[in-house]
Design a protein around this nucleic acid. Sequence first.
DNA 1: CGTGTACTTGAGTGGGCTCAAGCAGGGTGG
DNA 2: CCACCCTGCTTGAGCCCACTCAAGTACACG
Lengths: 240, 240
Amino acid sequence: MPLRTPQIRCQGRSNCGTCELRQEMVCAEVSLGDLVDFHAGIDDLNFETNAPVFSGGTGVDAVYCIRSGAVKMVRTDLAGAHRIVRVLRKGDIAGLESAFSEFYEHSAVAVSAVKACRIPIADFRRFVTTHQSLQMRLMQKSRDALRETEEWLADLVSGTIPARTRVARLLLRLRIEGTENIHRIGIEDMAAIVGITPETVSRVVSDFVSRGFLEKIGGNSAYRNFRGDIASLTQVACTA
Amino acid sequence: MPLRTPQIRCQGRSNCGTCELRQEMVCAEVSLGDLVDFHAGIDDLNFETNAPVFSGGTGVDAVYCIRSGAVKMVRTDLAGAHRIVRVLRKGDIAGLESAFSEFYEHSAVAVSAVKACRIPIADFRRFVTTHQSLQMRLMQKSRDALRETEEWLADLVSGTIPARTRVARLLLRLRIEGTENIHRIGIEDMAAIVGITPETVSRVVSDFVSRGFLEKIGGNSAYRNFRGDIASLTQVACTA
DNA sequence: CGTGTACTTGAGTGGGCTCAAGCAGGGTGG
DNA sequence: CCACCCTGCTTGAGCCCACTCAAGTACACG
């Protein structure tokens, strides 16, 4: 997979003013005026599926606000295996946990077509130290991330829970808010999340499809999705 | 198991002044003078093994700074099973993630003899809003908690990694800093962390003991421990 | 039209689960 | 002081789910 440089579409100020996410994002606490004052170099980026956003261990140079799509956060375990510890979605901030470290803790990789705003780390740190209420908001974001990760631990990952159940729970978590559509990430990625083999994931997903719990949408394009029978999946998810 | 009220040993001001942990705890950012000004009702508490610190879903009334011992943070999964998502140790803060919520997200239970400082939530919130540098410290604590939980996810919990390896990794994480002693939590608790059955944990631990990788110390008292052969355990922990 | 990637499907094996019985230690009461 | 229980741990036998290895298929892309 070639490492493609993301396209820069437009710059800072103009789109922040019209951004529908502005109220729930980091920058909600930063007035438009401040953004201008700081000459903030906020870029609006597009990433295609499998494009890296940043790489674990490299120097921190920015944080990214996800505006659409999904980004996987990958860690490496003691034996060197990759493990996905969280999936960021609309409204999440990639790199926040590393914002005050020298190097990124995770690798971040787009798992679908992604739109994101890139905030240079120097600007970000300046915003934070000069805007008290922003700090509170970041604590909240950080707490949200913690809760999400803990819920993964509790729900998705447990050898004593059957693979069927766990995959169903994962699918429900990947549901696109308010719809019956589900982010369709790769089989390999699903395996790296619930901690089972890709083959088993494939078998379970195939089974769900044949039962009509899932329907594949959009072929294998970057915008592919599942359409899920939420009720049935929920039932499977609650199986002990 | 009877629910015993913890003993109150002494109050606020006096022990904060001499606390060896003061520099690394929350209150590092709060001057002794401020503590007095706020008439802070910080209590010094003891919990015995299996004593609840607080219970998930109940109203948040305090946060607790752990001064010694270990506390398990318990979540309930979709099917109602208990899952331990983190173990707090010396220097950690129990309830921090709920500090700005109405109800506790977890149940917190002592897994050994625990000494902790109780900070009433009203005082805590006042500290936070009036001390900027404290906010930064809390973000850091929150980030530490997130990292710890993610490392659990990556290292401890994966159906594709053999139970032996995972138990070895858990034991290394429960190591008491700088020593070859290891917090000896119950078999049941270890199972609830790595996501396997108590029987399997027991078999693995017994095996480690018979090989000399582990030695049981202190019988079954509240102060029991393992003494571990760190090198051998590390080797097992790195087995794919 | 060939090539590569991602996914599917199959057969066989084994690790860990289940169920169940046995054991040790500490606390309680006679 | 001992008999008792209760809780937490240990150990065993058998089975089943999910892993492993391997081959086959579908689809996208050049």
